[in-house]
């Protein structure tokens, strides 16, 4: 493998999903970087893994995990960590990321991303798990803030302080999902800009953007729609504060034509460049 680069450019990339892999391989579109879900390549061999290696040869690549369940009171699933370690060795990604969430307990996995109760106990546990993961992988991991539809009665720490404390205590990077901040601010009634202001800028290694849908007054993070106008505005204010960052368009359900994702990425790229122009 002759890796394209080992750093994510400070530009707008695209989350690569299976329906678009062959098109990307055939046409080599001008995309600054791709990101894939790590678990989709927890394979021993076969054509999907071979395709990923070819894409990695031409593009910087980020591995985004959805199944580590870092916030579970259960121990880390070491077989899951080992599969990630194997994939990292194969692909040499520019960035490895996971979610600040839990997905199961007592050995049972629900394969979805659940919020933590934001308590001192959960913070201590999340810090220990992130530190353990970084230790076992021998590299820093970027941790993403998730969207949520409920909060826990026992929570005592604002989500943004919890996220910032995790980065400070473990030295982990943050993957700031601006759509998730907007969704949570709406669902739980807080100020999205105050959230962004609490995040240590140096920790932010990447930004995610996606679309949500609305059901009974609750915003659902479906990754199945264009980025909303309010989220573009929050993204612009976030970039203004942090400076430009590698930014990713995610679309996971009702996946549209690749050109639609390219248009969304072009919008993000325009905001990044406008911010750079002001800074320069």
């Amino acid at each position: 493998m002759s890796p394209a680069s080992n750093r994510l450019p400070f530009q707008a990339g695209i989350g690569l999903r299976t329906p678009h892999v062959n098109e990307v391989l055939a046409q080599c579109p001008d995309v600054p970087f791709f990101e894939v879900h790590s678990e989709n390549y927890y394979l021993d061999g076969g054509p999907a893994l071979a395709s990923l290696a070819r894409i990695r040869a031409d593009y910087p690549l980020s591995l985004h995990g959805v199944g580590m369940s870092l916030g579970s009171a259960d121990p880390l699933d070491l077989s899951h960590v080992e599969k990630l370690r194997t994939l990292i060795a194969r692909i040499e990604p520019a960035l490895v990321s996971e979610h600040l969430c839990w997905s199961g307990i007592a050995g049972r996995h629900l394969n979805d991303l659940f919020p933590l109760p934001y308590t001192d106990e959960a913070l201590a546990l999340a810090c220990a798990r992130v530190a353990e993961l970084q230790e076992r992988l021998g590299r820093a991991v970027a941790i993403e803030n998730i969207s949520s539809y409920l909060t826990f009665a026992d929570s005592t720490i604002p989500e943004w302080d919890f996220v910032a404390a995790l980065a400070r205590r473990t030295g982990c990077k943050l993957l700031l999902d601006v759509n998730n901040i907007y969704v949570n601010a709406t669902n739980h009634g807080f100020d999205a800009d105050a959230y962004v202001a609490a995040i240590p800028p140096d920790a932010v290694a990447e930004i995610h953007l996606a679309g949500f849908e609305t059901a009974n007054g609750c915003l659902i993070d479906t990754h199945g729609a264009p980025v909303a106008p309010d989220v573009w505005a929050l993204y612009a204010r976030t970039i203004e504060r942090l400076g430009s960052r590698p930014t990713l368009i995610e679309w996971d359900t009702e996946i549209p034509a690749f050109a639609v994702l390219q248009r969304e990425a072009a919008t993000a790229q325009g905001i990044l460049e406008a911010c750079n122009a002001v800074a320069a």
């Binding site: 009171a73 007592a106 933590l116 009665a153 929570s155």
Partner: peptide, 28 residues
């Protein structure tokens, strides 16, 4: 205050058993 493990156990129970108590969730 309930332990993290207890909250997680009860949440999973509530997902599979809609009649389970969910007083650990904030709000009405």
């Amino acid at each position: 205050m309930q332990s993290l493990r207890e909250i997680q156990r009860r949440f999973v129970e509530a997902v599979f058993s809609p009649e389970a108590s969910i007083d650990f969730v904030a709000g009405s």
